[in-house]
Write a protein that binds this DNA or RNA. Sequence first.
DNA 1: CAGCATGTGCTAGAAAACTAGCATGTTCTT
DNA 2: AAGAACATGCTAGTTTTCTAGCACATGCTG
Lengths: 122, 122
Amino acid sequence: MNETLSRRERQIMDVLHRLGQASAADIEAELPDAPSYSAVRAHLRTLEEKGHLRHEVEQLRYVYFPTVNPERARKSAVRHLVDTFFGGSPADAVAALIDPKSAKLKKADLDRLAQLIEEARR
Amino acid sequence: MNETLSRRERQIMDVLHRLGQASAADIEAELPDAPSYSAVRAHLRTLEEKGHLRHEVEQLRYVYFPTVNPERARKSAVRHLVDTFFGGSPADAVAALIDPKSAKLKKADLDRLAQLIEEARR
DNA sequence: CAGCATGTGCTAGAAAACTAGCATGTTCTT
DNA sequence: AAGAACATGCTAGTTTTCTAGCACATGCTG
């Protein structure tokens, strides 16, 4: 997780990571306490200058993408979470995610995870 | 994850969540691009006024704690991660954490997780 | 065509964040 | 006692963030 992003910049990058790609209007709609469309665009311009995102033109409209690939962003975010909240232990993080008190995982999901754990044990 | 925290405020709260409790000097030592001791203290005062942390006096020195309990903070952070990077699917997040390409979990950890999954399946 | 809706580039002012310094207090060492 | 080290409360100046508005462009509709 990038520690140089300001409050708003971070919110905007989170929206982009969640949606994969988005127009300025999409982003505005997803932001907490959303500012005006033009304020969102000003932030997007800054983030693009910093290299955090890029845009493409689709039907005369800009669509924005994170520059870091999704897999890389995911890994970075997971590592930050594990370090910050789980004492660096991925297993503790998994245990929290599996915990039936937190999230009701579907049977199919549990079957799949049991399989993955079996594979990781070899 | 609290979206109203500024860049520095967020960094400071992360340190507190990681360490559980910390003095201003501890926090300064852990911050990326750490400012001066007095700058850190100014931030801590702001965060305390906002209710995010509190302090106790230990040997004439302030020690700071997050006000939200650790379990609650963890859940909130996990939910934010899952929503932002894993399309809302805890199972996908677990799969990423277990992935041998990302983290080499110990056998004891895997055994424990296999057990937890068995229990969650019932 | 004119007007409206929607889009972008850019600007600048307001607000917030960030920072370090000063004054004061406490404890320890010489 | 004096000085140094370490601590806090507070301030204010600097920098960054945040915001919305203006000018201009494009496409659609009546």
